[in-house]
């Protein structure tokens, strides 16, 4: 059944009927499993990967990676501060990192000004946050195994083997 999760990771639009056919299981069983997996939080959600640059070429919306250094709090470790950060709607992803900083915050679909004011106004002022470094993403090449640029197709292909 884990195979079904891997397939949905590749394409969340597979129907339970398709998943059943591909894995040789009964459709009812697949549906049951998915309902349970959603209830258990094994599947957190289903989203689309959108190339917004193609939707609006003149858009000034950007994505940023903000490195955050924090001092862990007694009894709570990093989780408490992380929670205070991810509650902001602006925050798209948040990861605890090994290395020279502690939290990686991703924000997308905002203007540079919005992001600056979020960093200075909200993020940096959270108790326990000791420093931030903001990097703007200039171009997206690949996300979730999907490539943004349309790949060239080979021409002059043999048609019959």
């Amino acid at each position: 059944m884990e195979e079904i999760l891997r397939l949905l990771e590749k394409d969340a639009r597979y129907t339970s009927k398709q998943l059943a056919a591909m894995t040789g299981q009964e459709q009812g069983k697949v549906e049951e499993y998915l309902t349970q997996a959603e209830a258990d939080g094994k599947i957190i959600g289903y989203t689309a990967i959108v190339d917004w640059d193609k939707v609006d070429k003149s858009s000034d919306l950007v994505t940023a990676l903000i490195e955050v250094k924090i001092s862990p709090q007694r009894g709570e470790g990093f989780d408490r501060i992380a929670e205070r950060i991810y509650q902001y709607d602006e925050v798209e992803s948040l990861y605890l990192m090994s290395g020279t900083f502690d939290l990686a915050v991703f924000i997308s679909g905002r203007t540079m000004r919005d992001i600056s004011s979020f960093v200075f106004g909200s993020l940096a002022t959270i108790e326990g946050v000791t420093g931030t470094a903001t990097h703007f993403i200039m171009k997206k090449y690949k996300e979730k195994h999907k490539i943004f640029e349309k790949q060239e197709e080979q021409e002059d292909r043999l048609l019959f083997v």
């Binding site: 056919a21 591909m22 894995t23």
Partner: peptide
């Protein structure tokens, strides 16, 4: 997977 899918 495609084999099973097509066959079905």
């Amino acid at each position: 997977r495609r084999r099973k899918y097509l066959l079905e």
